[in-house]
C-alpha cells in the first residue's frame, strides 16, 4: 500500500518534534508542582501534589498506548519509519511512571520527609492495598523493558527479547486496572482508557489470528 500523504520517508525533524512533545507534559508538571509548592504559584490548583501525581500517571498510560499504537498506525498509513520511535515512546513511559512514583512517595506519602510517615507505611501501602500493589507491579515489570531497550541488548537477547517485550501488553492492562481501582466512584475516565486499550489489544489479537490463518493456508 502506498504511504498515506506520500510520506514514504520520515519528515525532516520528526524525531526532535516527537521527543519534545513527549517531554513537554513532564517538564510542565515538574515545573508547576515545584513552583506551586515552593514559590507560591497556583498552576495546578488547590492540591498541586494530587494534580501532578494523577497527571503523570495518566501520561504514563498515554505513552504506553502510543507504543502499542505504532504498529497499527504503520499498517493503516504505511509510514513504516514510525517503527524506530517506539523505543523513544516506551522509554518516555518509563520516565513518566518513575516521576509518578516519585511524586507519590516524596510529595504525597512523604516517606523520608514527614516525621509521621515511615517505610513501614509504604510497605503496607504496596503490599496491603491492591491498587497500589498492581501499580507497583506494573512499574517493576517496566524495569526490564527499559533496561533491555538498547541495540546491544536486543542483539544479545535474540529471540528472548521479543518474548520479554510482550510485557508491553501486560503493563498497560495493569496500569488501567490501577487507575480504575484508585478512583472513588466515578469510573468515566479509567473507562475511557480501558476502551482505548481494549481497541488496541483487539487489533493485535486480530492481526495474530490473521497471521496464523495465512500461515496455515501457506
Amino acid at each position: 500500500m502506498a504511504p498515506l500523504g506520500g510520506l514514504a520517508r520520515q519528515p525532516r525533524g520528526f524525531g526532535v518534534v516527537l521527543f519534545l512533545a513527549a517531554l513537554a507534559p513532564a517538564a510542565w508538571f515538574v515545573y508547576a508542582v515545584l513552583s506551586d509548592l515552593f514559590f507560591g504559584s497556583s498552576y495546578l490548583g488547590t492540591d498541586p501534589v494530587k494534580a501532578a501525581e494523577h497527571g503523570l500517571g495518566e501520561w504514563t498510560l498515554r505513552l504506553l498506548f502510543a507504543t502499542l499504537a505504532i504498529t497499527p498506525l504503520r499498517r493503516i498509513t504505511g509510514w513504516n519509519w514510525l517503527a524506530k520511535h517506539r523505543r523513544t515512546l516506551g522509554l518516555f513511559a518509563f520516565a513518566y511512571v518513575s516521576l509518578h512514583l516519585l511524586t507519590w512517595a516524596l510529595l504525597d506519602v512523604q516517606v523520608g520527609i514527614s516525621e509521621y510517615v515511615g517505610w513501614a507505611d509504604v510497605k503496607k501501602d504496596i503490599f496491603k492495598r491492591p491498587f497500589i500493589t498492581i501499580g507497583m507491579t506494573a512499574f517493576v515489570l517496566m524495569i526490564p523493558l527499559a533496561v533491555t531497550s538498547t541495540k546491544k541488548m536486543i542483539a544479545r537477547l535474540g529471540r528472548n527479547w521479543r518474548r520479554l517485550h510482550r510485557l508491553a501488553y501486560v503493563v498497560p492492562v495493569l496500569g488501567v486496572f490501577h487507575f480504575w481501582m484508585a478512583v472513588k466512584l466515578d469510573i468515566t475516565e479509567p473507562g475511557i482508557y480501558g476502551l482505548v486499550l481494549a481497541a488496541l489489544l483487539l487489533w493485535r489479537a486480530r492481526e495474530a489470528r490473521l497471521a496464523k490463518a495465512s500461515a496455515a493456508a501457506a
Binding site: Q110, S114, Y116, V117, D121, R129, A182
Partner: peptide, 19 residues
C-alpha cells in the same frame, strides 16, 4: 480506609503531612 491510611492527612495549602 481499605485503600489508604487515615493516620495522617495533607492540609490543603500546606505541604507537610500532619497527624
Amino acid at each position: 480506609h481499605p485503600r489508604w491510611s487515615q493516620a495522617t492527612e495533607r492540609r490543603i495549602g500546606q505541604f507537610r503531612r500532619i497527624p
